[in-house]
C-alpha cells in the first residue's frame, strides 16, 4: 500500500472511531438526563403532610462536603506519596512486589469491608463515635489504595527517557521526580485522584455501617458532629413508607447528582490549570 493510501485509511478509521465515541457519549448523557428527569418528576410530586413537608438537605449536603474535604486531605497526600515512592524510589525487590500486589488487592476490596474496619477502628477503637471525622477517616482509608493505583498508572506512563535525560544533565533524583516526572504525570494523577474521590463521596455502604444519622436538627459545623451525608440520607428516606418520603428521596438523588457534578467541576478546573496546561 502506498503512503497516501495508508494515511487515507487511518483517517477513515479515525473518523469512524470518533463517531463511535460520540454515540457512546451521547447514550451515556441521554441515560443520565433521563435519570435526572425521572427523579425530578418524582420530586415534583412533593411532600404533602407532616414531617416530610419540612425535611431539608442542608445537613446532608454539608456532611458530604465535609467528607469530601477530609477524604481528599487524607487520601491525596498519602496515596500520591506512596505511588511516587513505589514507582520512583523503592528498589524492585520481592518485598516490593508483595507490597504492590497487596495494594492492588486493597483497591478492589468492597467499601462495606472498609466500613466494618472503620467501625472497629475509628468509631469504637479510637472512640470517635459515629462522627464526620470517623466517616472521613474511613472514606480516606478506602480511597488511598485507589489513589495509589491510579497515580502509579500515571507515573508509569511517563517515558523512561525523560528520567535518563534529566539525570544525565546532573539533576538529583528528587529534581527529576519534581521537575520532570510529576509534571508530566500531573494530569493523570489529578484525574486518578478525582475518580477515586468522586467514588468515595458517592458511597453509602461504609457510612451506613459506621452509623450515619438519619435525622438531625442542625448542619454539621465541625468534624466531631454526627455523621450525615447525601447517600445515607437518600437511603434513610427510601426506607420510610410514609407519604412524601419517596419524593424526598428522589429530590435528594437529583441533589446528589448536582453535588457530584460540582465536585467534578472543581477537580476538572484544578486539572485544567495544573495538569494539562503544562504538557
Amino acid at each position: 500500500m502506498s503512503a497516501p493510501a495508508r494515511s487515507r485509511e487511518t483517517h477513515r478509521v479515525r473518523r469512524w472511531l470518533r463517531a463511535l465515541g460520540g454515540v457512546a457519549a451521547g447514550i451515556t448523557l441521554a441515560a443520565l438526563c433521563m435519570l435526572a428527569v425521572v427523579m425530578l418528576l418524582n420530586a415534583g410530586r412533593g411532600p404533602d403532610a407532616g414531617i416530610s413537608a419540612h425535611s431539608g438537605l442542608l445537613a446532608a449536603v454539608a456532611g458530604t462536603l465535609w467528607l469530601a474535604i477530609l477524604t481528599a486531605a487524607i487520601a491525596v497526600p498519602v496515596g500520591v506519596g506512596a505511588a511516587v515512592y513505589l514507582e520512583e524510589y523503592a528498589p524492585r525487590t520481592r518485598a516490593w512486589r508483595f507490597l504492590a500486589s497487596v495494594l492492588a488487592n486493597l483497591a478492589g476490596v468492597p467499601p462495606v469491608v472498609y466500613g466494618i474496619a472503620g467501625l472497629a477502628l475509628f468509631v469504637r477503637g479510637m472512640g470517635l463515635g459515629p462522627s464526620i471525622l470517623a466517616g472521613g477517616l474511613t472514606l480516606g482509608v478506602l480511597t488511598v489504595p485507589r489513589v495509589i493505583a491510579n497515580s502509579r498508572r500515571a507515573l508509569a506512563s511517563v517515558p523512561e527517557s525523560l528520567r535518563w535525560n534529566a539525570l544525565a544533565l546532573g539533576a538529583t533524583r528528587w529534581q527529576v521526580v519534581r521537575e520532570q516526572v510529576l509534571r508530566a504525570a500531573a494530569a493523570g494523577i489529578v484525574k486518578g485522584c478525582s475518580a477515586a474521590l468522586v467514588r468515595a463521596v458517592g458511597a453509602a455502604a461504609p457510612l451506613l455501617i459506621i452509623g450515619a444519622a438519619s435525622f438531625t436538627t442542625f448542619a454539621p459545623v465541625s468534624p466531631s458532629d454526627p455523621l450525615t451525608s447525601l447517600p445515607t440520607q437518600i437511603f434513610a428516606w427510601t426506607a420510610r413508607p410514609q407519604a412524601g418520603f419517596p419524593a424526598l428521596a428522589a429530590g435528594a438523588s437529583v441533589t446528589l447528582l448536582f453535588v457530584m457534578a460540582l465536585i467534578g467541576l472543581v477537580l476538572w478546573d484544578i486539572r485544567r490549570r495544573h495538569g494539562e496546561a503544562r504538557r
Binding site: T216, T217, P226
Partner: peptide
C-alpha cells in the same frame, strides 16, 4: 421522636438533636 425533635427545633433553632434507630 423525629416529630418532637422537629417541633422543638422549629421553636428553638439552636437545638442540636440527632435521631437514629
Amino acid at each position: 421522636s423525629v416529630a418532637v425533635a422537629d417541633d422543638l427545633a422549629a421553636a428553638r433553632p439552636d437545638a442540636r438533636i440527632v435521631v437514629a434507630t
